[in-house]
């Protein structure tokens, strides 16, 4: 196992105890490139696309996906970041997270928004993101891209672009970064 990238995974979540690495950095880069091609196939006009990464796990991937789109089409594809802390439905049950930066510089009305997150699990984060996006206008289409879909949905939400489908059990944990994807367990904080 690549030790420096493992450190990267632990940085994201210090309680994470990895068991094995499922995707390497190269695998992740390849998946992102394929997803970029899929986005281009699906959208009519890449100038209308705004890629929005969800804080904190989705932001690096969103930037990489937007870079990929720019590289393939030669058009500067816009991207931003969104923190959904204020829109969560579990605020009353979990300690309120400290919100990270939200940066969306464009009115999203009539745009094609591609939401990007690292791991799709219950779907509640995406539900919160859909809620939040309406404050920036009325997008023509909203799509969802995730690096890992681990199942266990609690809401009627499905991704449009998936890096890898990983069936998991509920007590497992997944960490996905540009450096790779790991499966393991969540240690006690």
């Amino acid at each position: 196992m690549d030790v420096s990238s493992l450190r990267d995974a632990r940085l994201r979540d210090p309680t994470f105890v990895p068991r094995s690495q499922l995707l390497s950095a190269d695998d992740v880069a390849r998946a992102l490139r394929r997803m970029a091609h899929e986005v281009i196939e699906h959208v009519r006009d890449v100038d209308q696309v705004v890629v929005v990464g969800l804080q904190t796990g989705g932001v690096d991937f969103a930037r990489r996906l937007a870079d990929g789109l720019t590289e393939i089409t030669g058009r500067a594809v816009r991207w931003g970041s969104l923190d959904v802390a204020f829109y969560r439905d579990d605020l009353a049950r979990n300690p309120a997270p400290i919100p990270a930066t939200t940066r969306i510089d464009h009115d999203l009305t009539n745009q094609t928004v591609v939401i990007v997150d690292d791991v799709l699990f219950t779907g509640r984060t995406v539900r919160a993101a859909l809620n939040a996006l309406t404050d920036w206008g009325r997008p023509r289409v909203v799509q969802l891209a995730v690096i890992v879909d681990r199942g266990h949905r609690e809401l009627p939400i499905r991704p449009d672009y998936v890096g890898k489908n990983l069936p998991t059990s509920l007590d497992e944990a997944i960490v996905a970064t540009l450096a790779g994807v790991w499966i393991g367990t969540k240690g006690r904080a």
């Binding site: 923190d83 204020f86 605020l91 400290i98 990270a100 930066t101 939200t102 809620n131 404050d135 920036w136």
Partner: peptide, 15 residues
């Protein structure tokens, strides 16, 4: 983070 919320057109979040 709330400074950013106050710069939005819709300055309201459902927290």
């Amino acid at each position: 983070a709330f400074v950013e919320v106050n710069r939005r057109t819709i300055k309201k979040v459902p927290a």
